[in-house]
């Protein structure tokens, strides 16, 4: 099973630093424990026993932005909440990513009115959008895996520029 059989008694693994960093980032990405509305319940479902996001190294949700790598904006963002959301984002240490979960967070959804920010990308930069109202937990997991692909593709040379 696993790495022991594949590598046998070699004892040494060679890889590039880029790949090693990407591997560690994508296998223990801690999301911010932060729910806004309906989508937060589906986010909790994704964390709980049936869908079990700990398979992807995400069982640990951190309530403190200082300890988290990923912000899942789960729900509608009101005008009153937007500055708070931005402050939370600013408090997260680099590198950080944002998933916009659900239609309301992505584009305002059914609420095209005075109270709701029409897309959270007005406030914070978004990496992955997940569609649905609310998205199924599978859809969120797909969004997370899409983000992992993106993170694995990060080249150090691009970041340093």
């Amino acid at each position: 099973m696993g790495v022991e059989q594949k590598l046998g008694n070699m004892g040494v693994v060679t890889t590039t630093l880029e790949q090693a960093v990407a591997w560690s980032r994508t296998n223990a990405m801690w999301p911010l424990l932060f729910g806004l509305a309906c989508c937060a319940i589906e986010m909790m479902s994704a964390q709980a026993s049936h869908y079990d996001m700990s398979r992807f190294g995400m069982e640990l949700m951190r309530p403190s932005p200082r300890q988290s790598d990923l912000m899942i904006v789960a729900g509608r963002v009101s005008r009153k909440m937007a500055p708070v959301l931005r402050r939370l984002y600013d408090q997260m240490p680099e590198p950080k990513w944002v998933i916009s979960m659900g239609d309301c967070a992505s584009c305002g959804g059914v609420f095209n009115n005075y109270a709701v920010v029409q897309g959270v990308d007005e406030v914070v930069p978004v990496d992955v959008y997940v569609a649905g109202c609310p998205p199924r937990p599978e859809a969120l997991i797909h969004g997370v895996l899409t983000l992992y692909e993106k993170v694995r593709g990060i080249k150090f040379a691009d970041v340093q520029k």
Partner: peptide, 26 residues
């Protein structure tokens, strides 16, 4: 309170009786 104020009541008034129901779920 008010961090999740969505304007649902106002939005419902802009829709016909059948269509407004979609808002009530949320």
């Amino acid at each position: 309170i008010g961090f999740l104020h969505t304007g649902i009541e106002k939005n419902m008034e802009a829709k016909t009786y059948q269509k407004a129901e979609v808002m009530s779920d949320r």
